[in-house]
Amino acid sequence: MKKVLHLLSGGGAGGIEVLCEQIGLRGEYCHEFCFLFSAGIIADRMKEKGITTYDLSSEGFMGKRSRLKETFLEGGYDAVVVHHEGVKIYYLYEMLIRLAEREKLLEVTFIKYLHCAFDEGVFYTGNWIEDRIHHFMLGRTLNDSDHIVAVSEFARDSYVDEYGIDGAKIKVVYNGIDVTKSAFREKTDSLGAEDASRDSSHLLYIGRVVQEKGLEVLLRAMALLKDRGVKTQLDILGDGDARTSLEKLSTDLGISQNVVFHGVVMEKEVYYKAAGIFVYPSTCLEAFGISVIEAMNEGLVCIASRIGGIPEIMSDDSQGILFEAGSVGALADAIVEAQRRCSADFYEDYREKIIERAAEFDIEKSVGELEVLI
């Protein structure tokens, strides 16, 4: 059986980490995961499920170099996949490439996994020297990899445009989910007419609580709808450095009683059952939106910004509602339309289309497409 070593910066509750967990559980090959700078809840869960993990977070940088070299040479790996971004992780990945060359381990395949689109606003700090080093190291990592995987066509094209890479070198592998893990899907066949609707007032957001995710736009849209007499309530699952300012904003807008910040939640089933509409109001160049797929798989009517790779998920109006990123008015109108789609008259037909679309993003397919490259 082939062995694969995956390099990650950390093992917290993020989309990349959850995807890696699924790769470890579902791959035909033996996938092992090295967390270089921090561990976290997903890293712990992977270990509990019997996936081999290496936690180098307590080591100094020189210690990480030594441990990683030792792990690589003793592991007999057929491939190394690097997931996260950053100069330090690029350096350690490049170190393994050079080590494989010196040790004549020419059969080892090196893969750069692009989970985000190229976006200077996200990648760069504003420090010219640091940013130039980052740009150079990322370019070298892309050039030295045997294969590059991007999670969307938009992500692929952003690196082709920035670095002049041959697009044929980059394989698009859409992120996948466990489509069988859906309480809603399990009961779909037995739904009666009285079940053919969702709670149209109940909104749900799952993701990082940071400025670029557009939650301020969502809160302002809710306030606008309140002024119009349209009832909404919102559950926010996730955490981040914008939480305090957003909690204050909800109070200032007079909607704090309608918004609940839950923090990081691992078991989301109860929230999927309660909500009717999922909103993903990102204002950054999203490469993909795994939370959107998960919500579609649970039968929620989905609203998302028309930005980045998100339109590749909801490529047809029957699969969801796209709105102009950053527009409060457009999002408010989209919520009203989503509420209409939650009604019994519309939802019975609509749910079949969104569940069928979600099924196209099966994690088994994603893992298989990755393993073909190894």
Score class of each variant (00 low, 15 high):
residue 3 K to S: 09
residue 15 G to D: 02
residue 17 E to H: 02
residue 26 R to H: 14
residue 41 I to C: 08
residue 41 I to D: 04
residue 42 I to K: 14
residue 47 K to T: 13
residue 47 K to N: 07
residue 57 S to K: 03
residue 64 K to D: 09
residue 66 S to N: 13
residue 67 R to N: 05
residue 81 V to W: 01
residue 81 V to C: 10
residue 88 K to A: 14
residue 90 Y to G: 00
residue 100 A to L: 05
residue 106 L to F: 12
residue 118 F to L: 11
residue 125 T to V: 06
residue 126 G to D: 03
residue 137 M to W: 07
residue 139 G to D: 06
residue 142 L to R: 04
residue 151 V to W: 06
residue 153 E to H: 14
residue 154 F to Q: 11
residue 156 R to G: 02
residue 156 R to C: 05
residue 159 Y to T: 08
residue 161 D to A: 12
residue 162 E to D: 00
residue 165 I to F: 10
residue 166 D to N: 15
residue 170 I to H: 07
residue 174 Y to G: 02
residue 177 I to S: 10
residue 180 T to N: 14
residue 181 K to D: 15
residue 188 T to V: 13
residue 189 D to N: 11
residue 198 R to T: 02
residue 199 D to F: 09
residue 203 L to A: 07
residue 203 L to Q: 07
residue 207 G to K: 10
residue 214 G to H: 01
residue 215 L to W: 04
residue 216 E to P: 00
residue 221 A to T: 00
residue 225 L to M: 08
residue 228 R to A: 10
residue 230 V to A: 03
residue 232 T to C: 15
residue 234 L to K: 03
residue 240 G to A: 06
residue 241 D to K: 10
residue 245 S to D: 15
residue 247 E to D: 13
residue 250 S to K: 09
residue 250 S to H: 07
residue 251 T to C: 14
residue 252 D to C: 04
residue 254 G to V: 04
residue 257 Q to L: 04
residue 258 N to G: 01
residue 265 V to A: 07
residue 270 V to W: 08
residue 275 A to Q: 06
residue 281 P to W: 03
residue 282 S to E: 09
residue 290 I to L: 15
residue 294 E to C: 09
residue 295 A to L: 05
residue 301 V to N: 09
residue 302 C to H: 11
residue 314 M to V: 15
residue 321 I to E: 02
residue 325 A to T: 02
residue 329 G to P: 03
residue 345 D to I: 03
residue 345 D to V: 10
residue 348 E to R: 14
residue 352 E to N: 14
residue 353 K to N: 12
residue 363 I to K: 03
residue 363 I to D: 06
residue 365 K to L: 07
residue 369 E to T: 01
